[in-house]
Nucleic acid binder design. Structure first.
Lengths: 298, 298
DNA sequence: CGACATGGATAAACACCCCTTATGCGTCGG
DNA sequence: CCGACGCATAAGGGGTGTTTATCCATGTCG
């Protein structure tokens, strides 16, 4: 019912292809004696000679000949399967990221990575769930964390999740421009419940801010808030680094350089055990370089 | 190009079928810890998780799922191949024998063995070449030997290859019956060169026998000589045990019980290493019992 | 709601398998 | 006739994979 020792079968397979113990041993990186041993083992298990020992060569016996093609086929299937897998594993990079980062920065910049590394396919899984990088089949995660994550994971800080008010130029113009922090109180605020509003005003030295009585929009993803802000629907707290393009192009304006320190940051995270996987190294290096300016600016 | 450790693949295959490390371990006769170790090994080699560890069960990962069917197929092929082989090896008994024995005794009696053991197919290779039982793929040999054979072979004496003159009743009648050994000299001898003639006459106390001037037929197989003798073409030296039926039925007559001791015998021979193979035991036991009378008579 | 059962992960120590080294034997070729 | 080539065999050691023991997480049952 159960198979003979697999190591013996592997040796047998190699010998059937070379029809030589010595040659097979070379292929397998072992000595001729070891090959002889394994074949003898298999022959005892099978109960019949697998090879006929001729003076200076060997030939398949009847039993051996009936076994050889099937064993070769089985090994061919496995070789192919693992070769495919290796390719797939090396070529597919799976990233899980918080939605904000996905739709803002990653969506705009991932193309550059793919141009640099066309051989790597990238799959982005954008979810706010904290995927377990150690157990689930995901290569890299991008998360907002207050501190470097638990043991077993390597993390690189990408950019601090600091916040500052952003708004559309048209909205700013509607009140004659935003000159000082208190001016913002005249404008509708998107998601004023956001704790960062209170923090920012505190840092800005504007007293008496209260979310009381202000409507709450529940646009809990920065990208949605950003879109709403660009549409002129209000002023909102965002991480300016993630809206660099929008600010540079004038679609959003950042009236004050002042940042509310969130105490959290976006981190690139991956399992320590895979820190040497080529695709992970590539992505990490690219990502750190591409986001270097964010860290430099702050 | 080269496969991951086969032991790990075997474990993986079992786990994919059970979807349980513990269960797979039971099937393979090892502990759950060992299974865990092997799977981890394979996962490191492949570079990706093969299973997703859910609380009380595991599930195939994407990579694992793509690998599983192919690995299962490969193992199925090998299992089938070795199962077939085992069947073939156990069910086919291959005998090499000297032609005389083949056509005389074996051809007539093998049917009885097959009735007793219908599950075993017998292949008889009748050749006078001495097949190397240790190296060639033959289970059992029947040979004429002067002594038990070389080391590594088990031998059982079947019957002494002693000779005595045999002739047809009609031929005996043509000279008014064979009363004493010297009468034989009046008859044509088939293969008079045969050394056994001289030996037999010597044992019989008939002096002056010479093969000089007598024609030589070169019928060097006993069965051919026997056929010629039955046709009345002459008197010939044969092993009476092999012509028991012919003598019993009157087709041949043995005028004298006197046997020339050939110093050789028919032996049943097989490799010592296979002495416990069921089919070999079966045939040996049957053969020794079926030929017991030959040894008893002499 | 807490104790238990289940299933997998992990660490350390050990056992055994399998490989290597060394040698022998038989045959072929110069 | 000697060396080359190829497989078989024995002895011995190293390393891989196993077991044992324990931990941890989760789901279940009283």
């Amino acid at each position: 019912m159960s198979l003979p020792p697999l190591s013996a079968i592997r040796v047998f397979e190699a010998v059937t292809r070379h029809l030589s113990f010595t040659r097979a041993g070379e292929e397998l990186g072992m000595t001729q004696a070891a090959v002889s041993y394994q074949i003898k083992l298999l022959e005892e298990r099978v109960g019949a000679p697998l090879f006929l020992r001729k003076p200076r060569q060997i030939a398949l016996s009847e039993v051996g000949a009936s076994l050889a093609p099937q064993v070769q086929q089985a090994f061919e299937i496995m070789r192919e399967a693992f070769a495919d897998t290796r390719g797939e594993v090396d070529r597919l990079l799976s990233i899980t990221t918080v939605p904000t980062f996905a739709s803002q920065w990653l969506a705009q910049n991932l193309g550059l990575f793919q141009i640099d590394h066309p051989e790597i396919a990238v799959r982005v899984d954008s979810t706010s769930d904290m995927v377990d990088l150690l157990n689930d089949e995901c290569d890299i995660g991008i998360r907002t964390l207050a501190a470097p994550p638990e043991k077993g994971l390597v993390s690189h800080m990408l950019v601090k999740a600091d916040f500052t008010p952003l708004l559309s130029p048209a909205l700013a113009e509607s009140i004659g421009g935003v000159k000082e922090p208190a001016d913002l109180l005249k404008l509708p605020m998107l998601d004023p419940q956001d704790e960062w509003w209170a923090l920012w005003f505190e840092v800005a030295g504007v007293p008496g801010f209260s979310a009381e009585g202000r409507p709450m929009s529940m646009l809990n993803w920065q990208s949605l808030l950003g879109t709403a802000a660009m549409a002129g629907r209000g002023v909102t707290m965002l991480t300016p680094a993630l809206f660099r393009d929008e600010i540079a192009s004038g679609r959003l304006i950042q009236p004050f350089p002042l940042l509310a320190p969130a105490g959290r940051a976006y981190y690139l995270v991956y399992p320590e055990s895979r820190r040497n996987a080529p695709k992970i190294k590539m992505f990490r290096d690219w990502m750190l370089e591409a986001t270097a300016f964010m860290r430099a600016e702050s």
